[in-house]
Design a protein around this nucleic acid. Structure first.
Ligand code: NAD
Ligand code: NAD
Lengths: 224, 224
DNA sequence: ACGTCCTTGTGAAGAGATGCACAAAGTCAC
DNA sequence: GTGACTTTGTGCATCTCTTCACAAGGACGT
């Protein structure tokens, strides 16, 4: 209520989470030569309802043309603008184990506006090793990296070390963290953490799987 | 409102997504010898509000004791029951590239009630190779694996192949899929798909990062 | 047995997200 | 220029999730 319509600048988090999906779909359409697209088409391509698509897109501004649809290229441009893809974001990965190496080798980030600029590990035996064209460096290099523009840190260390690594990232000045360790991180205000937890995802699947097996003797209520 | 509270069997999706978190925290408390815990403590350990914790837990039943709190072991047991962790779930990983190998090598799934029973790849050159103690097999083995109890499939192939792999999983009888490929999957009713998209996570971080850099001082438009 | 103290479990209010349905606004054919 | 047609943008109703706030329930000391 009283905390007013500065909502103008505040795109809902759920919408933000869907924007990359729209963007990906748009790139696909652009690739196959489609120049104009309706909210219905975009909805079909991303698996959401067209009304939601329109409401989401209207958060960015009025970039559609009634009776016609959206210009694929222009809409893609506006979304990437909203997402901050105006330039590449430098990313550092901390923890060069199984997962860290897979991430380092992944070529898909580059096309989404991210550049992996550093691979860090505590283990001195790894320092100097080349992985995917980058040399593994000590975690103490973080402050230097931040001065060079590092903005996003990825934590791929064991859970025990995750809070420590997080603290180092924050101390160095990183304010956006993607955490793969299955643990909750405590960070100061202003730092955004997102967590990817594969075990949790599997557990959610197991929940639904179990529900299917166990016949719903009670009222129907077969989940959505 | 009047929509029944046969909630008994219909746990809200958001709640399900938090249960693994609670469970992990409880295991931690149990490990350090704590036998009883309040919703406030659990809230602190998982980063949610205590009221939410209580409402979530009340979905499972009344396992707390007023004035005292919850018995750590019993609550953990009830949550794992709700999540279907009564037995190990067999999991197959399809696509033995960078990511698939990291997943196969990950030891953390075992403790959460999952057992990786098969590694599959289309590439014949990989067939027979041992990874993390398992032999890589052709995707055509899927029907056989389902007969042996396979319930959950993980897709770690390139995006191009993801829909094809998904179809094969579904045809073979798998009804729970975890998808790492950055693409939308189309599946029949009754099949549950969860998607983990690392690029999307980074894009969301970039969105917030950009917002921080761009000072909110100019009240009007950077966009419209 | 009784009173005090503590924490749960939950109605009810508040926020937020989704879906509906349609007026508004444009294109295009003629 | 006009009318038929298409699709956006959005007000409103609905549904879902969160937060508040407190009565109910139980433990424990005396
Ligand atoms: N591998 C997977 O598929 C997978 C799946 C789900 C979750 N995870 C999680 O991802 C994280 C990493 O998994 P992994 O399999 O790559 O582990 P790993 O043990 O293979 O690698 C961990 C790496 O982190 C480094 N490290 C440890 N402490 C550090 C510190 N304080 N600072 C810097 N580096 C440090 C180690 O030297 C090691 O190289 C874990 O938290 C794990 O639970 C991994
Ligand atoms: N590596 C990462 O860190 C990372 C990060 C984000 C997303 N991803 C996504 O995960 C997926 C896998 O990534 P990756 O780096 O491991 O790729 P990769 O190219 O290293 O491995 C892909 C594997 O899948 C196999 N494959 C291809 N088509 C198949 C089919 N139809 N059936 C069975 N197997 C098939 C290939 O033989 C190969 O072994 C991709 O979709 C990628 O976008 C990976």
């Amino acid at each position: 209520m009283s905390i007013d319509q500065s909502a103008r600048r505040g795109i809902p988090e759920v919408t933000v989470a869907r924007l990359p999906e729209y963007l990906r779909a748009l790139r696909g359409f652009a690739e196959q030569g489609t120049t104009s697209i309706s909210s219905e088409d975009l909805a079909a391509a991303t698996g959401v309802r067209s009304a939601k698509v329109r409401k989401d897109l209207s958060q960015l501004g009025s970039y559609g043309v009634r009776g016609v649809g959206y210009d694929v290229d222009h809409l893609a441009y506006q979304i990437s603008l909203a997402l901050g893809q105006t330039h590449d974001w430098p990313v550092a990965i901390v923890g060069m184990g199984n997962l860290g190496r897979a991430l380092a080798a992944y070529r898909g980030f580059a096309t989404k506006g991210f550049r992996i600029v550093a691979l860090l590990d505590q283990n001195e035996l790894l320092h100097g090793e080349r992985i995917a064209g980058l040399v593994v460096r000590p975690v103490t290099d973080l402050p230097e990296l931040v001065l060079e523009g590092l903005a996003i840190g990825v934590i791929a260390t064991p859970a025990d070390s995750a809070q420590d690594v997080s603290d180092r990232l924050v101390d160095a000045g990183v304010r956006s963290i993607l955490n793969f360790a299955p643990t909750m991180l405590t960070v100061p205000d202003g730092v955004v953490v997102r967590k990817v937890d594969l075990s949790t995802e599997l557990q959610i699947l197991a929940f639904h799987e179990q529900r299917k097996v166990e016949p719903p003797t009670h009222l129907q209520e077969a989940r959505a």
